[in-house]
Computed example of a mutant assay.
Amino acid sequence: MEFVNYLGQENVVTFFLLLVRTGALMVFFPFFNHMQIPMTIKATLSFMLTLYLFPLATPPANLDLDGINVQYLILEALSELMLGLCVGVLLMLVFGAVQLAGEQISMIMGFSMATVIDPQSGINAPLISNILNLIVLLAFLLFDGHHLVLYFLAYGLEYIPLGGFYPEQNILKYASQGMVNLFLYGFIISFPILALTLMSDLIFGMLMKTMPQFNLLVVGFPIKITIAFVVLMAILAVIVKVFTTLMMRVLNDLPSLFF
């Protein structure tokens, strides 16, 4: 009987909005939205997180128990989805920089036609882009990025009321700067391979002028691929370091943006 009394309108609405917030975590946040994780596992984890975080949650400030309707719940749920979308986009922009670098490297190596299904997004992506994406995802787990995301979710219940989020101007400015960094760091990561392969193209061009019998398709492309792989292995630690620095910067900026 005590449990039935606990299921009042206020607690039900609070639990529903908290469930939407944790569900947005499984939809928009990196690692948690991985396509290889079954939907049943995501739903179960979202429900368990809701049960765990429910004692920390407070009811919406403008909650009117006598006037609750479907429109009110829809607007509050959209606010929670918007919160997950904004945070998820800021985090995924860092992954996007590495993916963009992988696409540029694949194109310069001649692997642009060799596309495979990206297990994280479920779309076709070049081979090198897929490899780099999986490596930085492992780096994200290595420095406990998934735990920091869960900590942000739990800590945010104290400062972001359920159903009370609205994207402010500073968040939009930060997202715009993140889009600029996506292209900037994507080019910076791929620049060593792009520069060396361009130099090899110049050398091959001079060889073809001096030695017309030089077969570029038979000799040139394997050499370019070998150079690109050697340079990629040499700068792989730097790529992970750049990704870790950018991701930690975003994670550290989240409290000041949203709280």
Score class of each variant (00 low, 15 high):
134 L>P: 03
97 A>E: 06
72 Y>L: 15
117 I>W: 04
99 Q>L: 10
135 I>R: 01
92 M>P: 08
134 L>C: 09
66 D>W: 15
130 N>W: 06
136 V>M: 05
129 S>G: 04
127 L>E: 09
81 L>G: 14
77 A>N: 13
76 E>Q: 13
122 G>H: 12
123 I>N: 14
101 A>Q: 00
135 I>M: 05
63 L>R: 05
139 A>M: 00
113 M>W: 01
120 Q>F: 14
140 F>R: 07
132 L>E: 05
67 G>N: 13
92 M>L: 15
64 D>R: 15
140 F>S: 00
111 F>W: 02
92 M>T: 14
107 M>N: 02
104 Q>I: 03
131 I>L: 02
59 P>L: 02
58 T>I: 00
124 N>C: 03
95 F>W: 03
120 Q>D: 08
65 L>D: 07
62 N>L: 13
120 Q>K: 12
57 A>H: 04
64 D>E: 11
115 T>K: 05
121 S>P: 07
144 D>H: 10
130 N>Q: 13
101 A>S: 05
140 F>D: 05
69 N>M: 07
119 P>G: 05
143 F>L: 14
79 S>Q: 06
93 L>A: 08
106 S>T: 12
80 E>V: 07
85 L>R: 08
102 G>L: 02
105 I>L: 06
139 A>H: 04
60 P>N: 14
147 H>G: 01
138 L>M: 04
115 T>H: 00
84 G>L: 06
132 L>A: 11
115 T>G: 01
